[in-house]
Nucleic acid binder design. Sequence first.
DNA 1: GCGACGCCTTACTTCTACGTCAAGGTTATG
DNA 2: CATAACCTTGACGTAGAAGTAAGGCGTCGC
Lengths: 154, 154
Amino acid sequence: MSDTSEAYLQIGEVAERTGVTQRTLRFYEEKGLLRPPTRMDGGFRLYSEDDVKRVEHIRRLQNLLGLSLAEIKEMVEAQEMLREITAQYRPEWDVAEKKRQLRKAIDVVSQQHGIVSQKAEQMSEMKAQLAERLQTFDRWMAELEHAERKAPVA
Amino acid sequence: MSDTSEAYLQIGEVAERTGVTQRTLRFYEEKGLLRPPTRMDGGFRLYSEDDVKRVEHIRRLQNLLGLSLAEIKEMVEAQEMLREITAQYRPEWDVAEKKRQLRKAIDVVSQQHGIVSQKAEQMSEMKAQLAERLQTFDRWMAELEHAERKAPVA
DNA sequence: GCGACGCCTTACTTCTACGTCAAGGTTATG
DNA sequence: CATAACCTTGACGTAGAAGTAAGGCGTCGC
């Protein structure tokens, strides 16, 4: 291969780099979460670095926010829209149409932001509770050790 | 029982108050996440306010942390242990045994704390990214409106 | 003491998010 | 050109977390 065309990855490399299985990558494609990658003549999938990022993003939405693939798909699709707008694709769209799409994207992202904010808040609340509980436990442990020194095991 | 024995709830009420179905409550019981509630003579389950809290806790662990019911079970069981220790139950246990149990509980809680901390951090990172993205969008939107004023819709 | 409604168990079904073959085509390498 | 390593589609399987339906008691208000 040419040295500069190293931008293309086969499914195995993508799997390794993202930590998901090949099956999962095909599955995401099937479900519309990853757009169908380009193919080699023989039919092998060729992914871009961008695709890798998308996979990582999907995983974050899954693990961090606990969203379903269906929900993630919606978000990913909005991202797609954006990329098209920003890359000056679809020059046939007039400004009004671009605005419509952009507004849609803003909606999705603010929704995402809302979810994250809410969860983050609940998390720090929970974190505080746990920290407090740990303190209590440490105190109890100290008490137990005190008791042990006073009255050693029979 | 005490005169204010109105503290007992049937499964339907618990379901309504916690937002889970009756099936789910029985399922959690079956899986050992909820200890078997007391029953009326006819066999109807009678839950306490404490049970309600436990259900809410389980849901938080599920939704916020994305833990499996198996993982949640471990945590809930550790909580149970603690309640017994702290309530001075099991006086037949010697101090060493109590220490063992307490240490176990501490382990579980610190693990929980670790998970929460990590997730919280990742969340605020994500939140920042989203906020930044929103800013960018707003700028674009402004640009589009500017363009529109200069060259109105054809 | 009866009707309506709530609850019981048991068993089967569903949905999501993949895992696991199987049988065969493609690509790189000596 | 053989051979290993990699990839393809397709079909079936699975674990977790419930949903749903069937058939049968319990409870409550009148």
